[in-house]
């Protein structure tokens, strides 16, 4: 028993000294599980997150916008890929993770269960959803598990273009025709609250100590990150000449940050539970891609094995 205890102490020491944990290092089982869960949920979110924006690729209103949107959605596939690989270093196969997603066992970010109804949604997602994700991901660049941190560094480099292109999309709309302005405001209205929900329940909702903070998997609380986000967006929206759909949003001189209204937690929990507008469509789309891709994956493997055999024979 003393040995395990010793291992745990050494492990925590490493973390306290800001040393990264690498795949072959000893780690508490719960640390492995927590990371696996977090990284795979993150990976699933990237991949499912391709769908709402992917919807608009064939309808993008100009060739330039089409190219930007395709490149952006493709980046998200890359993010999913980097993260699945990072999670695999913890001992679970990508195939298993995908199975868990498709069977409904593993979760992804609820934000992607909202529909994309107009072109302006492409701007709002880039600006608000990627913007919210970036705050989280910048923090995760310093997470304690090495492969996760390295994946996040790569991802953050790519993400900076996502938020900018989103904002710029809205900026053009905000200076456009009356119909475009209306489209722009409507998208902001619909995506604002779900974006705030992305940061999760309030810190005060919790009763237990947070192991993730102690292990430095996470470094900021939900409320801290959400406040950073509100402060950032409340300033940027002025440049768009649009408004955020919150009558309680107000600068608080005392705390040097914005006050804002109460999130509709009932909606939040319902979307998490699968009652969001698009939960079923999203998972169905992933199942379809996975199942219809099975024969392709099998064929590639069979071909590789055949060629390998031929090589071994000729080498012998």
């Amino acid at each position: 028993m003393t040995t395990i205890h010793q291992f745990e102490n050494d492990f925590q020491d490493k973390i306290d000294q800001e040393a990264k944990i690498e795949p072959k290092d000893w780690m508490p089982d719960a640390y492995r599980k927590t990371n696996l869960r977090q990284i795979s949920q993150h990976a699933h979110s990237e991949v499912v997150g391709m769908l709402p924006e992917g919807n608009w690729i064939t309808r993008a209103p100009s060739l330039k916008r089409k190219a930007i949107l395709i490149a952006k959605v493709q980046d998200e596939a890359g993010h999913g890929l980097y993260l699945y690989c990072a999670a695999e270093t913890l001992g679970q196969s990508r195939e298993q993770m995908i199975d868990d997603l498709l069977s409904g066992k593993a979760k992804y970010s609820s934000i992607f269960n909202y529909p994309t109804l107009t072109w302006a949604d492409m701007g709002a997602i880039g600006w608000l959803v990627d913007g919210a994700a970036i705050l989280n991901q910048v923090m995760l660049c310093r997470t304690s598990y090495g492969p996760y941190a390295r994946a996040m560094v790569r991802i953050c480099k790519e993400e900076s273009f996502h938020q900018r292109q989103g904002f710029e999309t809205l900026l053009v709309l905000s200076k456009g025709t009356a119909a475009q302005k209306e489209m722009c405001q409507d998208a902001i209205n619909r995506w604002w609250w779900p974006s705030l929900m992305m940061f999760g329940p309030k810190d005060s909702e919790s009763t237990n100590s947070d192991q993730s903070m102690k292990w430095k998997i996470k470094r900021k609380s939900n409320d801290e990150l959400r406040q950073n986000f509100v402060d950032m967006i409340a300033e940027q929206i002025k440049l768009l000449g649009m408004t955020l759909p919150d009558p309680h949003l107000k600068w608080n001189e005392q705390k040097k940050s914005y006050d804002f209204g109460e999130i509709n937690w009932e909606e939040f929990w319902n979307v998490v539970k699968g009652n969001g507008p698009c939960n079923k469509e999203r998972i169905d789309a992933r199942i379809k891609a996975h199942e219809q891709g099975a024969w392709v994956r099998e064929a590639a493997l069979a071909y590789a094995e055949k060629k390998n055999k031929i090589k071994t024979v000729s080498a012998a």
Partner: peptide, 27 residues
């Protein structure tokens, strides 16, 4: 549950996908 962003999205029963998990034979 305290954190909900990536990693702590709770295991609520999901949209009940009609998917039969099978370890991918062609990994």
């Amino acid at each position: 549950i305290k954190k909900l962003y990536y990693g702590d999205i709770p295991d609520e029963p999901g949209s009940g996908a009609a998917y039969i998990a099978k370890a991918d034979t062609a990994a």
